[in-house]
Design a protein around this nucleic acid. Structure first.
Length: 987
DNA sequence: ACTCTGCATAGAGGA
């Protein structure tokens, strides 16, 4: 935490102070105080003092922390006390209203829920609650008459919107409608009691300040206008976020006259408890509202079952206690790991907030499993953590199905995931939206600011609004925003953060259009917006969820634990006859005809497997063809198949091939991410074209195809909670993080991983996590069970010379060419003769040599030439190099040549590949990129006919993989020297 | 000593 370079310090509305020193002052007799030496200057010079008293001294603040202060500051001294001021710890970590209110009862649960976000399954009551919210919100903004509300309820319950959830919970629409109808009379009662109406006689106690003095009297409350529903507020002042069910203009008639205020209404469909949790939520909304408007001082709790409305005052005392609670939760979330002061600087997992000793509460807790798991695997080893004695046997009993190896796996992966999460937050995070002006952020290309909305807003489908934005003056600046990227729309003005989120639909020189989740047409025409690229915190929830699931006490998880953690030997049956139905024999035989020997072997191995098979797909060995054939064979045998990969593109690559055969499949995942030719197989498209409107129909769609395809992250889909597949195939498996790869395996009896661990591994940002082994894919881990491995060694991409490099480097000669044709293929250069004439000049003989089709592999040594490596290239390990090359190519108006990183080229090929290795110095600072055998292997196995590598031989010999390659090239006389080159205008 | 894919979200109630 101490020296994060990207911390922005400043004063003002979103002031950010760094805490330099913390001291506790105990004056005799009086309460203790905490004195903080703080600074808002980046040089850390101008310091101020912050005094915490009346309970604020309990805030767990330490030197190095970033805080936001609210309240009075006089002559460089802030006082945060019972009466005034707030200290907000880590204010850029926005916590939701529900997280904080749930932490009142159990902070441990609140913290666990942030990590294991999706572990809570949901219940019928929750779904009914969501639907009731929707109906009420729409009704209150349009029409609250009986007829209209009934119509609306029908439209929503019998519409498409909640079908998935109903399917997941096994509920029928009629059941839901029955429950909903019981609520509707209360809607009208509420409207009669509180909507603007002279006959309205309601009276309630409401405490509001009025010109300095506080009145505590009965007031008549009238809702005069609904300003917004589901208003999203991000408050970097208080470190809070949340969505307000209903934002209303309310008239309060009291003795001293009429007041008008904009206030939050919180809807509840459950028991009319008026509980502290419910009230706290409202109080937090009153605080968040300060971000946008004057203090509402109070809000309302509206219980939909009875139509009763309770006023909730946002009293100073309650706000203060809730903010302290928020600081504690923020502390635990930020300090989830620590480095011990003694010994090596290894990160360790910290204790969670203590377990509460309340069996009544724990009995119903949705985080119980994770709570006990963490106690057993992590905390029981800590001397500092004491458990309530009665709980120890409970924890042991609930985790007794886990072996020590499982607990170790859990704590190691929990640590690695946490470290990686922290790295991700550092790099991404939303805080730039409020801490960095759009103009500055535009330079990095992650933002387009200063735009206004133009044209009409179109509701493309339910809850999807197409907006168009134009720069206020001039063209849209150069940006990295691409079609399909996620964006956050905010107002440039303070307080209008995160107004909507959505996707980029189109980017041109003059406008950006986005599909947003909210309609922004109610904002004044002249509102100035900014669009920020939303990198979000994707992929953090899924692995935590899968880790938790792997530790469950159920047969599926137990089997996976045995196979994956304990390396139980995968089993195979003896004879194909027992799996191959007689009627499928001919079809299977026909499919096999089109395959080579190792591919056939792979098919056989999969069919015989009882647990899993690993298919090593070396470069160009026809992985897609093999997977396609495998799916065809499996479905011919009557098996159901779940087909997944890390990326949507890879899933669609197989599907595009599969679509040519008579194999039906269902494609899940966001239609926008799916290949146009596959669109018609997506759930979205099928439901639209067949206008699916009932749970039964949806179920039919889900069960209609024996093959289901989606990305590994997409396995949160409700279908996977209900269906079991016979086989699961995971493509690109060597590039998928272990726990992400695990997701689809929970719903399948057997699995097949396809990959090549000699190519690039999963990306891990955090170096410590990487050192702990986080980049080990499941494919790599299981590869030690050699009996489950089949290798595809016959390749159809590279000619023999190019292939030989990789064979020498990593594959130990196992790769072979699929045919003579492949082996001898050379590049076709129709204009070569003409070009050669032009190159008559003797100084350009090197170029002749390089271009000669009979020289498939060539390494250009730039040592003597002294030319800048940046003059030539197509693939490079470095982004900067690519930028230089792209700029040069643009100058020559050449945009057809694809310039990209090695990493991005994985999985693809071209006829000619030029690799620019860039480095031209022999100093000690070696980059780590070129030390990776796998990256080099990827780089040299992309070319089919001609591979030209450019680099400085002595410089590159410092890297072991390149040294081995260059040695080989030298022995084969494949290295040339540049003559004098100033310009290169080939291609 | 620089390589980068994934994805909706806070809150829906229950004690």
């Amino acid at each position: 935490v101490a020296d994060s370079p990207d911390v922005i310090l400043k004063n003002g509305l979103n002031n950010r102070y760094r805490v330099l020193e913390v001291s506790v002052r105990q004056r005799n007799g009086s309460d203790p105080e905490k004195h903080l030496t703080i600074t808002a200057s980046p040089s850390l010079e101008d310091t101020e003092l912050c005094i915490l008293r009346n309970g604020w001294e309990s805030v767990p603040v330490v030197p190095g922390d970033i805080v936001h202060l609210e309240g009075e500051c006089s002559s460089g001294t802030w006082v945060i006390s019972a009466q005034s001021g707030y200290l907000v710890l880590y204010p850029d970590l926005l916590l939701s209203g529900t997280t904080i209110s749930s932490s009142i009862r159990c902070m441990r649960r609140a913290v666990l829920s942030e990590r294991f976000r999706d572990s809570e399954l949901g219940s019928p009551q929750m779904l009914i609650g969501t639907i009731l919210h929707d109906i009420f919100q729409q009704a209150v903004t349009n029409d609250l008459t009986q007829e209209k509300v009934q119509e609306l309820a029908n439209k929503i319950v019998y519409g498409q919107k909640y079908l998935k959830e109903m399917y997941l919970l096994n509920l029928k629409q009629a059941q839901i409608m029955q429950e909903i109808e019981e609520y509707l009379p209360s809607f009208f009662k509420w409207a009669e009691d509180f909507m603007h109406n002279p006959a309205n006689q309601n009276k309630m106690q409401l405490k509001l300040s009025n010109g300095g003095k506080t009145e505590d009297v009965s007031s008549k409350i009238e809702v005069v206008d609904i300003l917004d529903i589901e208003e999203n507020i991000w408050s970097p002042r208080f470190g809070l976020k949340g969505k307000i069910d209903v934002t209303a203009r309310v008239k309060i008639h009291c003795q001293s006259g009429v007041q008008s205020r904009v206030m939050p209404l919180e809807l509840k469909s459950g028991k009319e408890s008026n509980s502290i949790e419910h009230r706290s939520q409202v109080i937090l909304y009153t605080l968040m509202s300060l971000e946008q408007r004057v203090d509402p001082e109070a809000g309302f709790l509206l219980y939909l079952k009875t139509g009763t409305m309770y006023p909730v005052a946002g009293a100073r005392m309650d706000r203060r206690e809730l903010m302290k609670l928020r600081n504690h939760v923020a502390f635990y979330l930020t300090h989830s790991t620590y480095k011990s002061d003694v010994g090596r600087q290894n990160s360790q997992l910290a204790a969670l907030p203590p377990v509460i000793d309340d069996s009544q509460t724990c009995k119903y807790c949705s985080q119980m499993h994770n709570c006990f798991l963490y106690s057993r695997a992590v905390e029981q080893k800590m001397a500092s953590v004491a458990f309530p004695p009665a709980l120890v046997p409970v924890i042991d009993r609930e985790t007794q199905h886990l072996k020590p190896s499982h607990l170790e796996y859990f704590s190691l992966w929990y640590l690695m995931l946490t470290l990686e999460l922290q790295s991700g937050e550092h790099k991404k995070g939303y805080k730039n939206i409020w801490m960095t002006p759009s103009l500055e952020r535009e330079k990095a290309g992650d933002c387009v600011g200063n735009v206004i909305r133009v044209g009409e807003v179109h509701e493309v489908s339910e809850g999807q609004y197409l907006h168009c934005f134009q720069r206020r003056n001039g063209a849209i600046p150069g940006t990295n925003l691409l079609v399909g990227d996620r964006v956050v729309v905010s107002g440039e003005e303070k307080g209008l953060l995160g107004l909507a989120t959505g996707y980029v639909r189109e980017v041109s020189a003059t406008k950006v259009s986005c599909l947003l989740g909210r309609n922004l047409s109610n904002f004044p025409k002249n509102t100035v917006f900014r669009l920020d690229h939303d990198e979000g915190d994707v992929g953090t929830g899924v692995p935590f969820k899968n880790l938790s699931k792997l530790m469950k006490d159920c047969p599926v998880s137990e089997r996976l634990r045995n196979l994956i953690i304990d390396f139980q030997k995968p089993l195979f049956i003896q004879h194909l006859s027992s799996v191959l139905p007689p009627e499928a024999k001919e079809t299977v035989a026909n499919i096999l005809k089109g395959l080579n020997k190792p591919q056939k072997q792979a098919m056989k191995q999969v069919l015989l497997s009882k647990d899993y098979t690993l298919i090593v797909g070396m470069p160009g060995t026809g992985k897609t063809t093999t997977i396609c054939a495998l799916v065809r064979i499996l479905s011919a045998c009557g098996f159901s198949v779940l087909l997944t990969s890390f990326t949507h593109t890879a899933v669609d690559n197989v599907l595009l091939k599969l679509a040519k055969f008579k194999v039906g499949f269902l494609r899940l995942g966001r239609a926008q991410k799916v290949h146009p030719d596959i669109q018609k197989h997506t759930e979205e498209e099928i439901c639209r074209s067949r206008s699916i409107k009932s749970v039964t129909d949806l179920e039919e769609v889900y069960n209609s195809q024996p093959v289901v395809a989606t990305s590994c992250m997409g396995v949160n889909h409700p279908i996977f909670a209900q269906k079991q597949f016979d086989f699961c195939i995971v493509d690109e498996a060597s590039q998928i993080s272990q726990l992400v790869c695990l997701g689809p395996l929970f719903c399948s009896k057997r699995f097949v991983l396809v990959g090549d661990h000699q190519q690039l591994p999963p990306l891990v940002l955090n170096t410590e996590a990487r050192d702990l082994g986080m980049s080990e894919s499941l494919f790599k881990r299981l590869e030690q069970n050699q009996n489950a491995v089949v290798q595809l060694t016959v390749q159809y991409r590279m000619n023999s010379k190019i292939m030989s490099l990789s064979n020498m480097l990593v594959y130990e000669g196992k790769l072979e060419c699929g045919s003579e044709k492949v082996s001898n293929a050379t590049v076709n250069l129709p204009n070569l003769k003409k070009l050669k004439l032009d190159l008559g000049d003797a100084s350009k003989t090197w170029l002749k040599e390089v271009l000669d089709p009979d020289t498939p592999v060539c390494f250009l040594n730039t040592e003597k030439a002294g030319c800048k490596p940046s003059d030539i290239g197509i693939i490079s390990p470095y982004r900067h190099q690519l930028k230089t090359i792209t700029d040069l190519m643009a100058k020559w108006k050449e945009s057809r040549v694809e310039v990209n990183t090695v990493d991005k080229y994985q999985g693809r090929d071209k006829s000619i590949i030029i690799v620019s290795f860039v480095r031209n110095s022999t100093d000690e600072n070696l980059g780590s990129l070129l030390k990776d055998w796998r990256r080099l292997n990827v780089a040299i196995t992309r070319a089919k006919h001609k591979l030209v590598m450019v680099g400085c031989v002595p410089s590159l010999c410092c890297y072991p993989p390149l040294e081995k390659l260059l040695c080989h090239l030298q022995s084969q006389a494949m290295i040339s020297f540049f003559s004098i080159i100033h310009k290169c205008n080939i291609l």
